[in-house]
Simulated assay, not measured.
Amino acid sequence: MYGIELLIKEHENIIQFTEVLKKLSVRLLEGEELNIELLKQCVEFGKYYSDKQHHGKEEKILFRVMIEKLGPVASKLIKNGMLVEHDLGRYHMTKLLEAIDLYETDKSSEVKIQLICHATGYADLLKRHIDKENAVVYTFAERSLSEEDKELVNKETEIFEKEASKNKVQERYLSWLKGVSKKIL
């Protein structure tokens, strides 16, 4: 199923990104000076690639179809699980950006703890979240959606991706991830 295959591929990129966040957190913990611009780029990647691009497809396409077609079980799984975790990820990104801004004028241990807490909290959340989606949510969708509904997800995903391609979303963020991974990991 194209839509789900693409989401799984994006998960691999997001996991690589979380490794960058963890490595930057370790470096800060060990006393290295924080590269503020790099951390701001990490927040941008989290907000635009992980959330707007990836979670956008899940929420607007796959999850919507699952809730509409698969009833209460899917609705509980999505609304009480996956969407709650998406919102928690957004919280971590917002708080991380606030901590970055604060760090520019206050390099205290308290601010460093906020940076580490939200960067690693986000990384851990996404790792567990991705494991659940790959093992439970996506397999449930593939097993339970009709062929017609799967085709609808695929078509809407193609449209979403064409728009992102026009704006070079994937190209820009994956190029950034490749470069930063070489430097950091």
Rank of each mutant, 00 (worst) to 15 (best):
residue 56 G to L: 08
residue 177 L to F: 03
residue 18 T to C: 12
residue 14 I to A: 01
residue 64 R to Q: 13
residue 123 A to M: 00
residue 10 E to F: 08
residue 1 M to F: 08
residue 83 L to H: 06
residue 2 Y to M: 14
residue 180 V to L: 02
residue 103 Y to C: 10
residue 111 V to G: 01
residue 109 S to T: 13
residue 183 K to Q: 11
residue 180 V to D: 02
residue 117 C to V: 11
residue 67 I to P: 02
residue 28 L to D: 03
residue 55 H to R: 04
residue 13 N to L: 10
residue 149 D to Q: 06
residue 89 G to E: 00
residue 136 V to M: 10
residue 121 G to T: 03
residue 25 S to F: 05
residue 31 G to E: 05
residue 13 N to P: 02
residue 58 E to C: 07
residue 156 E to T: 06
residue 116 I to K: 04
residue 114 Q to W: 12
residue 132 K to H: 08
residue 185 L to I: 08
residue 32 E to F: 13
residue 112 K to M: 15
residue 43 V to Q: 06
residue 70 L to M: 06
residue 145 L to D: 00
residue 144 S to T: 08
residue 105 T to E: 15
residue 86 H to K: 03
residue 92 H to R: 04
residue 168 K to R: 12
residue 31 G to M: 09
residue 24 L to C: 08
residue 47 K to R: 15
residue 79 K to S: 14
residue 7 L to A: 09
residue 12 E to I: 11
residue 107 K to E: 14
residue 74 A to S: 07
residue 119 A to S: 13
residue 20 V to H: 01
residue 21 L to M: 07
residue 143 R to N: 11
residue 43 V to F: 09
residue 183 K to M: 09
residue 92 H to T: 05
residue 117 C to F: 13
residue 182 K to A: 12
residue 6 L to P: 00
residue 102 L to F: 11
residue 48 Y to W: 12
residue 75 S to T: 12
residue 125 L to T: 02
residue 114 Q to V: 02
residue 97 L to M: 14
residue 89 G to I: 00
residue 72 P to C: 10
residue 91 Y to F: 15
residue 65 V to H: 01
residue 73 V to S: 12
residue 65 V to M: 00
residue 52 K to E: 14
residue 118 H to E: 12
residue 129 H to L: 05
residue 27 R to L: 15
residue 19 E to G: 13
residue 33 E to R: 11
residue 35 N to C: 11
residue 84 V to Q: 06
residue 24 L to F: 04
residue 100 I to Y: 07
residue 24 L to W: 04
residue 114 Q to S: 13
residue 2 Y to S: 08
residue 35 N to I: 10
residue 101 D to E: 15
residue 98 E to D: 15
residue 8 I to R: 09
residue 46 G to F: 07
residue 57 K to V: 02
residue 27 R to M: 15
residue 52 K to F: 13
residue 22 K to R: 15
residue 69 K to P: 00
residue 54 H to D: 00
residue 73 V to R: 12
residue 27 R to T: 05
residue 15 I to E: 10
residue 99 A to H: 05
residue 104 E to F: 12
residue 20 V to F: 04
residue 90 R to G: 08
residue 51 D to R: 04
residue 153 V to H: 01
residue 52 K to G: 07
residue 86 H to P: 02
residue 116 I to L: 05
residue 140 F to A: 03
residue 63 F to C: 01
residue 90 R to P: 02
residue 152 L to R: 08
residue 131 D to P: 00
residue 20 V to P: 01
residue 134 N to C: 10
residue 132 K to N: 06
residue 101 D to H: 11
residue 64 R to C: 07
residue 31 G to F: 11
residue 59 E to L: 09
residue 1 M to E: 07
residue 175 S to K: 14
residue 40 K to E: 14
residue 160 F to V: 02
residue 85 E to C: 05
residue 53 Q to R: 10
residue 55 H to F: 10
residue 181 S to R: 05
residue 155 K to W: 11
residue 26 V to E: 13
residue 20 V to C: 05
residue 54 H to V: 00
residue 39 L to W: 14
residue 26 V to K: 11
residue 10 E to N: 10
residue 102 L to H: 12
residue 16 Q to F: 02
residue 134 N to K: 09
residue 14 I to L: 04
residue 149 D to L: 03
residue 1 M to Y: 09
residue 14 I to K: 02
